[in-house]
Nucleic acid binder design. Structure first.
Length: 465
RNA sequence: GGCGACGUGGCGGAGUGGCUACGCAGCGGUCUGCAAAACCGUUUACACGAGUUCGAUUCUCGUCGUCGCCUCCA
């Protein structure tokens, strides 16, 4: 039985869903700047969720939105002297590429706020009609005083929120905690026409509106980073309950923990962000993905380049262990470890530990059982979106490699052929016990990232750094 | 100040009222011309104080500390 921690009840709940139709919505990024590692974590951990639901034979409809219009995007595009849409498109492409490298499955729908302006306006009209919204000089606002159940998700009181420091008081709102549904445009700002005046949607309304348009009034699982709980998700609830008071909006709220750098949250506002692309060039996407697997999705997770390298080592060991088998669901222990830990609020960290325990105890297994263990481990990793094969091993020749082998009179055709010839040459020295020369060759090839391993199957391997 | 989370061995990170988590690194060994890889073995852990209990890292209370949110954010 799958259990998930519901942020709304603050409880681990047994999930009851209709197998034939599970609707999942993930709050995606605001495309104002390049994707950072935190975006990666959120995308990957909820990709684990969707893949696991698929494995359990739920029929999932998965939507992940893109916020392509908001104050920060406008601000940034003015700085760069390009249009908001040019900036948004450029950054969206970066996100797509990153998601692809991380092997996240493509959502069934990836709506952008600006593609749903009509729907958003209709939604606001309902809120105005239901008296949850009012029009003022600067825009249309949600009237918090009308919604009694405000802040149930974050478990706060209205009066406590009032004491916050960031409330914009300069605006002509009835109450400081009211939030914008529609913002009238100032000069040089992009705008769309609306019954109240030209402007743009507020940050929160797009999600309520797109959820309804694409998935319907009730969805099963709503995911996002835990920094979105307040105000974003509170406001989504306020909007959706304001528009449709008698409908259940979301059955299960799931929130992932933040990524930390030296114990502090990585975020745009802290200015301590690490860009995904920086690491996706140096490491392959699978390593990043594996890094995210090592911690349970709700826990804060510490990031550093050392920890990423550590993940790479661990992953390589796993790849090595399973290298000669095809993925098959054979070993009952592996499958029950997989299901039990995933059922326990997607505890991928526990799964990993328990699987390694099996690997450690596998020394005495007979051949067939050992193969079953290996192919089953490969199987569950496949389910979670890992190929468990070494990538980049057939790295195309670059100038450095060609030059290197030329020094030893070896013509570079492909990496395997070249290294093989190199090893044969070195073996010549070893045979006549000229170990000085043999060691020099081994040292020199190490400088181009190839490490020779006498007595192993392949005789060599790539080093990553 | 309000609300919440957490404090586990060198680092990371699970979990449990009594049984080695696990990974990586380290150390020792086997192997090897040497090294690497592989394999075997292995070291100081549950912030502090009190309580409940036959027994607490796990439950309760207190203390200290760290972090998150409080209308920017994944």
């Amino acid at each position: 039985m799958l259990k998930l921690y519901n942020s709304f009840s603050n409880l681990l709940e047994e999930v009851e869903l209709n197998k034939k139709e599970v609707k999942v919505y993930l709050c995606g990024p605001t495309v104002q700047s390049s994707p950072h590692l935190g975006h990666g974590r959120s995308a990957v951990v909820f990709d684990f969720l969707v893949r696991y639901l698929n494995y359990l034979e739920y029929k999932v409809t998965f939507v992940r939105n893109i916020t392509d219009i908001d104050d920060k995007i406008i601000e940034k595009s003015l700085e760069e002297n390009i249009s908001y849409s040019e900036l948004g498109t450029r950054v969206s492409v970066e996100f797509q590429n990153a998601y692809e490298k991380l092997n996240c499955i493509k959502p069934d729908s990836e709506p952008k706020a600006t593609e749903f302006i009509d729907e958003i306006i209709k939604y606001i009209e309902i809120l105005v009609e239901n008296k949850f919204a009012y029009i003022s000089k600067s825009g249309v606002y949600y009237d918090i005083s009308k919604f009694d159940d405000y802040l149930l998700l974050s478990g706060r009181k209205k009066e406590d929120v009032l004491s916050g420091t960031r409330v914009e008081i300069e605006e002509d709102k009835n109450s400081p905690e009211d939030f914008a549904l529609w913002k009238f445009s100032k000069e040089n700002e992009p705008y769309w026409d609306s019954p109240w005046g030209s402007g743009r949607p507020g940050w929160h309304i797009e999600c309520s509106s797109m959820i309804e348009s694409i998935l319907g009034k009730t969805i099963d699982i709503h995911c996002g980073g835990n920094d979105l709980i307040f105000p974003h998700h509170e406001n989504e609830i306020a909007q959706s309950k304001g528009a449709y008071p008698n409908e259940v909006f979301v059955k299960y709220w799931l929130h992932n923990g933040m990524l930390n750098l030296s114990g502090k949250k990585m975020s745009k506002s802290e200015g301590n962000i690490k860009l995904l692309n920086d690491y996706l060039n140096e490491f392959n996407g699978q390593v990043l993905r594996f890094f995210f697997l090592r911690s349970q999705y709700r826990s804060p997770q510490e990031f550093s380049i050392e920890l990423l390298k550590e993940s790479e080592s661990t992953l390589n060991n796993l790849i090595e262990f399973t290298k000669d088998v095809n993925p098959k669901p054979k070993d009952k222990n592996v499958l029950s470890i997989f299901k039990e830990s995933m059922n326990e609020d997607l505890n991928t960290a526990k799964m990993l530990g328990d699987l390694f325990k099996l690997i450690n105890d596998s020394g005495s297994l007979e051949q067939e059982k050992l193969e079953d263990l290996k192919s089953s481990i490969k199987f569950v990793f496949n389910v979670l979106g890992f190929e468990l094969t070494k990538k980049d091993i057939n790295k195309t020749a670059d100038e450095e490699l060609i030059e290197f082998f030329k020094k030893y009179d070896i013509k570079f055709e492909n990496i395997n052929q070249a290294v093989k010839e190199f090893i044969t040459k070195r073996e010549g020295f070893r045979k006549i016990k000229d170990f000085d020369s043999a060691d020099k060759m081994r040292d020199s090839i190490l400088h181009v990232g190839i490490s020779l391993e006498d007595g192993t199957d392949s005789g060599w391997s790539w080093k990553t750094s």
